[in-house]
Computed example of a mutant assay.
Amino acid sequence: MSSETEGQQHGFRVSSVTTGDRRVMLLTRDGVRIEARYEPCTTGSTDAAIVLAHGFTGAVDKPAVRRAAGVFAEHAAVITFSFRGHGRSGGRSTVGDREVLDLAAAVDWARTLGHRRVVTVGFSMGGSVVLRHAALSGARVDAVAAVSAPARWYYRGTAPMRRLHWVVTRPLGRLVGRVGFGTRIHTEDWNPVPLSPVDAVPLIAPTPLLIVHGDRDPYFPLDHPRMLAGAAEGVQLWIEPGMGHAENAAGAELLGRVGEWLLRK
């Protein structure tokens, strides 16, 4: 696959706006239709919106995403969306590369809805995406939180990551991804390799950045969040005792703290 020029990853169009639960289809700069959902703040009107980027194999309607959105909606309006190749979105997953275009479309939609403060939070693959998106000139986000994010690409140091690489790189693995997890994966390698999360971090300042990671994460050990936090001055790091990986492991109390942090910065 060929990555877009990162400085150009901001255009979008909105189509098929429905009434009721405020679901839309966003059209990314490279022409992929992305399903998205808007939920107003449950505790009153606010000019802030939290855009949530799920992990690999997640989607708008997955229980863990809905649970996280419900907690965040106590603090601000929430936009959730399904990355390309996930849920009812079009295209195929590039496992963190062109997904920056999907997030850009969701952030721009939040701005068109009138939200003056727009923040992003991403989990696992989504964590790498929010970091790379925030590093782009013109990304227009006010704070960023990356939960359970990798620091570097091609990591195979744990059994879960070796299994994930098999799913992504092998024909049988991609079949398992499509049938077993509902995730359609691109068959081409990255070309060029996108900016790594750790290299993106120094480009995010002065936007406030929070790195959150569990000390029992089976995918990425603690050198990943420490690399991310150490890549620039002023990055806040939370190591969560007993926490596993991404949105499936993030409890309501932690999600509430993340929401509060995003909106007070």
Score class of each variant (00 low, 15 high):
Ser3Trp: 09
Ser3Phe: 08
Ser3Val: 12
Thr5Trp: 04
Gly7Glu: 15
Gly11Leu: 12
Phe12Val: 02
Phe12Ser: 11
Thr18Pro: 00
Gly20Leu: 05
Asp21Glu: 10
Asp21Pro: 05
Asp21Arg: 13
Arg22Cys: 05
Arg23Phe: 00
Val24Asp: 10
Leu27Trp: 12
Thr28Pro: 12
Thr28Cys: 08
Asp30Arg: 14
Gly31Ala: 13
Ala36Met: 04
Tyr38Ser: 08
Cys41Arg: 08
Thr42Val: 11
Gly44Thr: 14
Gly44Pro: 09
Asp47Pro: 13
Ile50Ser: 00
Leu52His: 06
Ala53Trp: 00
Phe56Val: 14
Phe56Ser: 05
Thr57Ala: 08
Thr57Gln: 06
Lys62Ile: 02
Ala64Pro: 00
Arg66Asp: 12
Ala68Pro: 00
Ala69Thr: 09
Ala69Pro: 01
Val71Thr: 14
Val71Asp: 05
Phe72Val: 00
Phe72Glu: 01
Ala73Arg: 14
Ala73Pro: 03
Ala77Gln: 01
Ala77Asn: 10
Val78Ile: 07
Phe81Met: 08
Ser82His: 05
Phe83Pro: 01
Phe83Leu: 14
Arg84His: 13
Gly85Pro: 06
Gly90Ala: 10
Gly91Glu: 10
Gly91Lys: 13
Arg92Phe: 08
Arg92Glu: 15
Arg92Ala: 14
Arg98Leu: 12
Val100Ala: 10
Asp102Ser: 09
Ala104Asp: 03
Ala105Glu: 07
Ala105Arg: 10
Val107Trp: 03
Trp109Pro: 06
Arg111Gln: 07
His115Arg: 09
Thr120Phe: 02
Gly122Ala: 05
Gly122His: 02
Ser124Asn: 08
Met125Val: 10
Met125Leu: 14
Gly126Asp: 02
Gly127His: 02
Gly127Ala: 10
Leu131Pro: 07
Arg132Gly: 11
His133Val: 05
Leu136Trp: 00
Leu136Tyr: 04
Ser137Asn: 08
Gly138Phe: 11
Val141Met: 06
Val144Leu: 04
Ala145Ile: 11
Ala146Pro: 03
Ser148Val: 02
Ser148Thr: 06
Ala149Tyr: 01
Ala149Met: 01
Pro150Ser: 01
Pro150Ile: 01
Tyr154Cys: 00
Tyr155Thr: 07
Pro160Met: 02
Pro160Asn: 04
Met161Arg: 15
Met161Val: 12
Val168Thr: 14
Val168Tyr: 10
Arg170Ile: 00
Arg170Glu: 12
Leu172Gly: 04
Arg174Pro: 08
Arg178Trp: 11
Arg178Glu: 14
Arg178Tyr: 01
Gly182Gln: 06
Gly182Asn: 02
Thr183Lys: 00
Thr183Val: 12
Asp189Pro: 06
Trp190Gln: 04
Asn191Gly: 12
Val193Lys: 08
Asp199Glu: 15
Val201Tyr: 03
Thr207Cys: 11
Thr207Gly: 03
Thr207Asn: 02
Leu210Val: 04
Ile211Gln: 09
Gly214Trp: 07
Pro221Ile: 06
Met227Gly: 05
Ala229Asn: 06
Ala231Cys: 03
Ala232Tyr: 05
Val235Tyr: 04
Val235Cys: 03
Gln236Arg: 13
Ile239Thr: 15
Glu240Ser: 03
Pro241Leu: 10
Gly244His: 13
Ala246Val: 07
Glu247Tyr: 02
Ala249Lys: 09
Leu254Lys: 04
Leu254Ser: 03
Leu262Val: 10
Lys265Ile: 00
